[in-house]
Design a protein around this nucleic acid. Structure first.
Lengths: 172, 172
DNA sequence: TATTGTTATACTCTATAACTATA
DNA sequence: TATAGTTATAGAGTATAACAATA
């Protein structure tokens, strides 16, 4: 096993590090701005933005969780925080009594609007201004594909929980 | 003011979201692997890797902090955690009694080595395999430039602390 | 006085497991 | 039995401010 200790080529390493570092720096800056202007964490902003972009302004909790990747309980935590501030409302769905529909309020849209200009400014200064139009198109293309691939590929070590599914136990 | 509410073009938005999401998903997966195999957080891995890659296996605390971007106290926290496990050693520098030199131990290199294959595997599966050689080169190039730019550009709202620097107070 | 690093502290966030309720 | 969501809880990580020591 481990026939020859597969190692990374320099370019691959460069790409990896550059990706992680860029995102980290950008997120740091954006988080700061969101906190200063709207007292929002990045995740909360994501949630509001997702709701605001949807046609109805609503989403089921589960669908929101899928979009943001975090755990159910994590989403409950954040949704409650947003609800306390009156930025969203939670109500049980009519078609399925189990699920809960989260809806952005006018106030929520207000905060989103107040935060947006600064958000764009940070983005311009930190990321966009240093790149050409073509760079940006390339990024959107390449990383878009990478993201789609990742969404389809559950990490080996963190396979989707499929406990008890009859016969699914691979090693036991 | 706010002459016309500068907004983002779709491509720009795509690039931004794809960047953040890709990095987020990747980090999530990598963090899992590091935790499972080496009981390391991503930051701790970064620190060990940085030390391991340096010629002497050593770095000053300040330089490490600069590399990882986090706060001083955050670095102290992580460095102590690594020291407790015997993966690094801290000793005061000889040339400057104020600074502390962190050095990776053999044990630290061992953990690094034990974690690396799985790390690469995750990277392959999740990111590299879905991209062409050219894609990866492009990524390394574009994001490399973006990172360099970000490192040079302190975020407006989070300017480097320069309190008390005579005459540096801009608004007072 | 400026810089290096630590400490104390408070807070935010995330995940796990147990639990309720509906399908 | 499976799914949707909440709760309790525990743990990791981060930042701020005050502090000590050296330059």
């Amino acid at each position: 096993m481990t026939p020859q200790q597969r190692s990374l080529e320099p370019v691959q390493l460069d790409a990896y590090f550059a990706l992680m570092e860029t995102a980290s720096l950008l997120r740091h800056a954006v988080e700061q701005q969101l906190q200063d202007v709207g007292s929002l964490s990045y995740v909360q902003f994501q949630l509001l933005a997702t709701l605001g972009a949807s046609a109805t302004g609503s989403q089921r909790m589960t669908d929101l969780a899928d979009g943001v990747v975090y755990s159910r309980s994590g989403l409950t935590y954040q949704a409650r925080a947003l609800e306390k501030r009156g930025l969203v409302i939670r109500a049980s769905s009519m078609d399925d009594e189990r699920s809960i529909t989260v809806t952005i309020t006018e106030e929520g849209r207000g905060v989103l609007g107040s935060v947006f200009p600064g958000h764009v400014a940070v983005l311009d200064d930190l990321l966009l201004d240093s790149l050409t139009r073509l760079d940006i198109e390339n990024l959107a293309d390449i990383l878009g594909r990478a993201r789609d691939h990742m969404r389809r590929t559950p990490p080996r070590s963190a396979a989707p929980r499929r406990r008890k599914s009859p016969g699914a136990d691979s090693t036991v």
